[in-house]
């Protein structure tokens, strides 16, 4: 249901914006197309494939974007002018898409059989300044990942809002809230408990970073302290998932950071199955001092 609503909003919004907005401009486009030799892991054969990628994006430009694209970022002698705060700020909608994958003539010979499509429609408000930077965005996203012909695939639809406040000293806070539909068919632990492989999930994150300053003698003093909290809740989870404690996930971490990637960290909790790769720190007290 959520997916239908979001996709409907997505297309309605797309058509409305396109119909009313005559100033859409291509901002980010690119493509890659290159042959690759794929070494099959289960055979001695080598397959010739094509790695492809295509992306493009449009910003529905306002006056600020027009200003950003003007030639006023250099002086009469060709020197960059410090006008960055105004040049990069945003107050506009955007639409972007990405298509990527690896393709071979016969899918069975493709050890990296992969393809992905992602479409994102959003609104971006970005205000860098000499005091507090403000950076907000809201977007609807639809993505489909699968093997090269999308015979096996999973789809993700989501709506997100994120906000950032930060000062020039390097202290900042970011908060994110997202409602999305998750495809959990690859999650063996879940599939052993229920046949419901798709569900709606509400998630949130708060990240805080405080830049530490110990003055002159700070050679071995920490540089920053970071706190991160993430929360995930499955909507209308079946009883079997609740009983197994898989309907809610919480995780927080505190990182005291020194030089050269040295840190002392404490973290507790877990991330959901599909986001495990985002986890950098181990659960518990960890350190990386020597």
């Amino acid at each position: 249901m959520l997916k239908i609503i979001l996709v409907s909003i997505f297309f309605y919004f797309s058509i409305s914006v396109w119909a009313e907005e005559g100033q859409k401009n291509s901002e980010k486009e690119g493509y890659t197309l290159k042959p690759v030799l794929l070494d099959g892991s289960n055979s001695n054969s080598i397959a010739l494939g094509i790695e492809y990628g295509l992306s493009n994006g449009w910003v529905f430009k306002g006056e600020e974007d027009e200003y950003a694209d003007s030639d006023s970022d250099v002086d009469e002698n060709g020197y960059w002018v410090d006008d960055v705060n105004k040049k990069v700020r945003r107050n506009s909608g955007y639409l972007k898409y990405e298509l990527s994958g690896v393709w071979t003539s016969e899918e069975e010979t493709n050890p990296e059989s992969f393809s992905k499509v992602k479409i994102e429609l959003g609104y971006d408000y970005f205000r860098p300044s000499d005091s507090w930077n403000k950076d907000f965005d809201f977007y609807l996203a639809y993505s489909m990942e699968g093997d090269q012909d999308f015979d096996n695939r999973q789809e993700v639809t989501s709506a997100s809002f994120s906000g950032y406040f930060g000062n020039p000293k390097g202290t900042y806070i970011v908060s994110i809230i997202e409602l999305g539909q998750v495809d959990a068919s690859e999650n063996e632990q879940r599939m052993a408990l229920t046949t419901i492989d798709k569900f709606d999930r509400l998630s949130g994150e708060v990240a805080f970073k405080y830049k530490l300053d110990f003055g002159e003698s700070r050679k071995y003093k920490p540089k920053s302290i970071g706190i991160n909290y993430r929360y995930f809740s499955e909507k209308s989870a079946p009883q079997s998932i609740k009983s197994a404690g898989l309907d809610k996930f919480k995780r927080y971490s505190i990182v005291l950071k020194f030089e050269h990637g040295l840190y002392i960290a404490y973290s507790k909790g877990e991330l959901p199955f599909d986001l495990q790769e985002e986890k950098v720190l181990k659960v518990g007290l960890t350190h990386n001092l020597f």
Binding site: D135, S160, S162, Y164, G166, G170, Y172, V174, I176, E205, A207, K209, K211, L212, K223, S224, G226, N228, R230, S253, V255, K257, E259, H260, G261, Y263, A265, S267, L275, E278, K279, V280, L281
Partner: peptide, 17 residues
């Protein structure tokens, strides 16, 4: 290794920072 980098943050947090 830099002080600002949000080691344990999601990709969105890293992008914002």
């Amino acid at each position: 290794y830099m002080a600002f980098y949000p080691d344990d943050g999601s990709p969105k947090v890293k992008e914002k920072a």
